[in-house]
Design a binder for these strands. Structure first.
Lengths: 138, 138
DNA sequence: CATAAATTTATAACGATTCTAAAGTAGAGT
DNA sequence: ACTCTACTTTAGAATCGTTATAAATTTATG
């Protein structure tokens, strides 16, 4: 079974029809060794550069949101204008390099246990996210 | 010395001319007991509701950015469409209530010490921010 | 007052994202 | 294979938050 079929199967099992647009995006996002961060704009440029059959911007948005809802992508917010997505959906944190304006993964195991000593009545914690902003040492 | 003059003085000492627009915004943001979170849209609505002399949206943006640059406000990002500002400029963290879509302060002292066990060459840590997402307990 | 620099303003422009309605496609049943 | 229906893609319009523009106004200074 080749990659295309694996992705098609994965999509189908999530209730998403395996269209050629979705499979092309799957290949770009998941057919690689390391996880990474990207913006919609980055993805659109990647698609443009590897293919002659452009995918409509609306479809890219639809697909990314569908993948996010299915848990294949994480959306990351930083004090920035851009919306980043992350193919690493495991529990982890981030560095944000303010000079390069770049996100860098920070493994859960590299962050000491975080203790929240305050509770909100009727609420439970869904996630704890740490953002470490860094700047050049000079 | 009344509030207006205190704000005028504060503005002047920051190198900002004390215009009536800026003083009005100061009163709304800083003339209160507790710090709070707001969006530009919230602020615009507040201004509309308390006065007949509307302040231009462009001025509101300019003023908020000026205040932020002077360190009187903090900008806060969450996985959300909105940009929030915080009149609490001390070191602290946040809860985000995903049901009410509302930010709640989380004091530094309510978060156990965070140890980052990874370093980036040539970079130093500027800040560590924790975002605790909560949902209804039911 | 007169002047220069800073500020405000309305409006235009912008970029990211969502909406729309029409055309195309995939899967299930025949 | 053929048909039907629901899902998907598409281009372009619309929308939203924000920034830029350029003229009018205001503030600080001499």
């Amino acid at each position: 079974m080749n990659n295309k079929d694996i992705f098609a199967e994965k999509l189908r099992s999530s209730g998403l029809r395996p269209t050629k647009q979705r499979i092309k995006i799957c290949k770009l996002l998941f057919d690689r060794k390391d996880t990474f961060h990207f913006t919609i704009n980055d993805l659109n440029n990647s698609i443009k550069s590897i293919t002659t059959e452009q995918i409509s911007l609306a479809t890219i948005y639809n697909t990314i949101h569908a993948f996010k809802n299915k848990g294949y992508l994480k959306e990351i917010s930083i004090n920035s204008d851009k919306t980043y997505f992350d193919t690493n959906v495991s529990n982890h944190h981030h560095f944000f390099d303010e000079n390069k304006r770049q996100l860098i993964d920070l493994d859960d195991k590299h962050v000491g246990k975080i203790k929240i000593k305050k509770t909100l009545p009727g609420k439970k914690i869904k996630s704890i996210e740490v953002l470490v902003k860094v700047v050049n040492n000079s």
